[in-house]
């Protein structure tokens, strides 16, 4: 069963139940108060779901993890990586265009671009 059918099934089940009580379809001669409570129920449900959502949203946004440390750690590792790559680079081959190291390639590229 696709999600669409599941939803249609669920909604129509609830809808039928609601209609049953509100319009007294089976002639169960329910007390008038039942019908008065049932009639605006979908609207109440909607509003309470909305309030629940807003509260949860507020909470989750306020407590959303900012990961400052992850960013710092990454910055440090980038520095470390650049140094290490520079070392490896010069050790193993004379690199990019025969004179630049791996991490400086981008600079070379920008220089070339700026010529045009």
């Amino acid at each position: 069963m696709t999600k669409l059918l599941q939803w249609l099934f669920g909604v129509s089940l609830l809808g039928a139940l609601w209609a049953l009580v509100t319009f007294d379809l089976l002639d169960l001669s329910l007390p008038q108060t039942y019908r008065e409570v049932a009639w605006p129920m979908p609207f109440y449900l909607l509003i309470s779901f909305g309030c629940y959502s807003l509260a949860t949203v507020g909470y989750r946004v306020a407590t959303f993890n900012d990961c400052e440390e992850a960013a710092k750690e990454l910055q440090e590792q980038i520095k470390e990586a650049k140094e290490d790559l520079r070392r490896k680079d010069t050790a193993e081959f004379s690199s990019c265009a025969g004179r630049r190291s791996l991490v400086e390639c981008s600079a070379t590229f920008e220089e070339i671009c700026s010529l045009f």
Binding site: T56, R60, V61
Partner: peptide, 18 residues
């Protein structure tokens, strides 16, 4: 889990429960 580099608006928009 989390995200670095998003301001409040972005968090609000991007976070699951927003």
């Amino acid at each position: 889990g989390g995200v670095y580099g998003w301001d409040l608006r972005r968090k609000l928009i991007r976070s699951l429960l927003a």
